[in-house]
Amino acid sequence: MIQMRENGISFKGTRDGLQISLGDDLTFDSLKDGLRKRLQQAGDFFKGTGLIVQFTGRLLEPDEISQLKNLIEEEIEAPVFIKDPPDDTTSKIFLENDDLIIEGPAKFVYNTIRSGQRIAYDGNIIVVGDVNPGAEVVAGGNIVVAGYIRGMAHAGSDGNDKAVIIAGSIRALQVRIGHLIARAPDNDAAPISQPEIAYVNGSEIIIEPYLKAASISRRRGEGYI
């Protein structure tokens, strides 16, 4: 992830494209100047590559969006596709402490998610049921599954390593948190039938039985084995 902030403009590279956050305390013209300057500073970095761009942080008129689109296209000499800004009702606003996401919007799914079904939400996802093989659950925040996870679960899909996955048993084929991927071992180890938690420690995803006594920081710290 690239993040730079200058002249009320910040760039953020996401999996889905480039997010350009525009300050709303500046005039539109000075924003345009700032954007042009930033793109020129970037030199050849963006040159010649088509971009998917999403503007955030400021409400733009359709006319302003097309002006910005033309400006970027001019600078990078390549086509630009504008993605709609993120929906306000599902904007990924999480309250976090040092270790964890502790608050944020949540989606409840009251049934088993079956093969071929995909649940995606920018906030937290709570599944009251199982996640079966071939199903996908993708959350911007945490994922909590009352039953078993046998399919694919991706928490912190925007790159948030503080996200965790908790389930009655994690037998997933693949678990993803932030930018990390863990896959099930090839040898069929006897599955654990008790609540488990998956979290990121350093550059690793750890999956282990959920013990009430151990906090995430203790788990992540040296003291916890």
Partner: peptide, 12 residues
């Protein structure tokens, strides 16, 4: 069983 699961999802 995987395919059956897919079909159950579509049926519901």
């Amino acid at each position: 069983v995987r395919d059956a699961d897919r079909v159950i999802g579509l049926l519901t």
